[in-house]
Every structure is written in structure tokens, then in C-alpha cells.
Amino acid sequence: MTSQLKKEDSVGKVIVITSGKGGVGKTTSSAAIGAGLAKRGLKTVVIDFDVGLRNLDMIMGCERRVVYDFINVIQGEAKLKQALIRDKRVDTLYVLPTSQTRDKDALTQEGVEAVLNELREEFDYIICDSPAGIERGAQLAMYFADEAVVVTNPEVSSVRDSDRVLGLLNSKTKRAAEEGAEPIKAQVLLTRYDKARIEKGEMMTVEDVLEILAVPLLGIVPESPAVLKASNVGVPVVLDEPSAASQAYEDAVSRLIGEVVEMRVDGERKPGLLRRLFGRSA
């Protein structure tokens, strides 16, 4: 079932989707980014690291097909290929669900490493959907990452938590611990962006957020009813009907794989913005 070949010869890239704060859109973003990569023919798996609070399967719409999970694999009760669920819509997309009944102590660093190493051989992209917080589960989700997407809302507590997470990415990860390793490449994904509230001065602007976090911007996802609708029906945003949110995620995916796409705010291209933002954070 995982016989499809990966597109690239090199080992797969591990990307953690993290935020510190809960409710900012990590799981929605993991599903959308994973589906977006898979749509481009890249073999992609999305892993749910939120042990005990399984949600990725609901957002991806495969909750009724979960037999074995990540924890079964780590504990040797199932083979990895038995636990991987292949998406019914995009055949290069897979989900590795977590357990709803165990607790986070079931994750071990060695176990996570073994699973990720096996997945690197099979997949182009491994997307790790981190739990909220900065405790063990979140630290394990980021530990082996090559890149990080820090999901942030334009709001003070979210920005502060993101800053804290950026600090952990630079200090509590494998790449931080290894002498001479390139540090994790971290980018900010602004979600729940509400232009009207920003214009009224109720929310922080993109410039404000980037100035504080001092890392590149991966994309700006507008607050959109399409996001809620997509999770209601269990379809990743980018596989649902086109919307400003799905366009924003598609653009973010393009940037993630190294394409240069001009920044779009609320569906409109903002030619000047990208240059200004990247000029600042380069």
C-alpha cells in the first residue's frame, strides 16, 4: 500500500507544525499543508503527536478508518505500514493517527526517532502536528525536525508563545544539540488574519508580528468560514472548494518547497508587502 515511489531520491524532510498556544490552527494547518504537498505529487504523511486528544483524523476525514496508531507502532504492537491510513482523495497523502486512549508518556524519544527514520525513507515530507504547550509532547514533535512552521494569530498571547517556541526550536532540538548542524529553519504562518479588525487597530499587523518574531513569513491565512466548514466535513482546506484560505495555504505550500510567490492578503496580491517583510526578516 505504500508502494508508490517518492518523488525525490534524498531522505524525506521532517516539518513540525507548532505554536505553543492552543486553538491557533495547528491541526487545520497541518492537514492543509500536508494535502497541499501531496497534491503536488510529493509523497506526504501527516503525524498526530497530540496523544490522548486525537483530532487530526477528524480534520482529515479518516476517523472511521483508524485501526492502529502511532503509539501501537512505537510499542511494537503494529507495523508502521499497518498504521498508515491512505487518503481516499489524494493517493500520495497518508495520515498516521495517534492514540485516543493512551497518555503522552507512551511517546519515547527512541520510538519517535525510529518511526521518523523509517518514514524518511518512504516519504518526501513528514508533517508533525504538535500538541499545544511546550511540554514533552510538543518537544518530541519538534525534536527531530528539519524545518518548523510556527502558527501564530495576530494577537499578543499567541505571538509571545510563538516567540517562546522559536527559542525552544533553537535550544531543545536535535539540530540545536548537534555541533555544526544547520539550525532548524523556522517560518511563521499567520492564521485567523482578520483584515477588518486589524484596520480598526484591534489586532496586530503583519509587520508588528514579524518585527517581534524576526523570522520569515510563510503565509497569511485569512479568518474564513471555509476553514470551519472544511473541518466540519473532514476535508483539508486545500482539497475543498477554492476560498481565500485555501489559496493562502496553497501559496504557503509553494513557499515551503522553495517557490517564490508574492504575498497575498485576503485574496489580494500585495506586491510591496513581500519585499518589505522579507527585507526586514532576512
Binding site: 509571545r160 508563545d161 516567540d163 517562546r164 522559536l166 527559542g167 525552544l168 533553537n170 535550544s171 518585527e211 517581534i212 524576526a214
Partner: peptide, 26 residues
């Protein structure tokens, strides 16, 4: 590099020079 929220940088001796932003909570 930026000093992030939750980080503490200590210069036990002499001066501390930071050439990057220092976040709230650092």
C-alpha cells in the same frame, strides 16, 4: 541571535552585548 521569551542569558563576568532583539519575557 534573537533572545526569545523564556530564555535567560547570563554573562557571569564582564559585559553582555546583544546584537538582536530581546523579546518580552526574556
Amino acid at each position: 541571535t534573537p533572545v526569545r521569551s523564556g530564555q535567560t542569558i547570563i554573562a557571569d563576568q564582564g559585559d553582555l552585548v546583544v546584537l538582536a532583539p530581546v523579546s518580552s519575557g526574556a
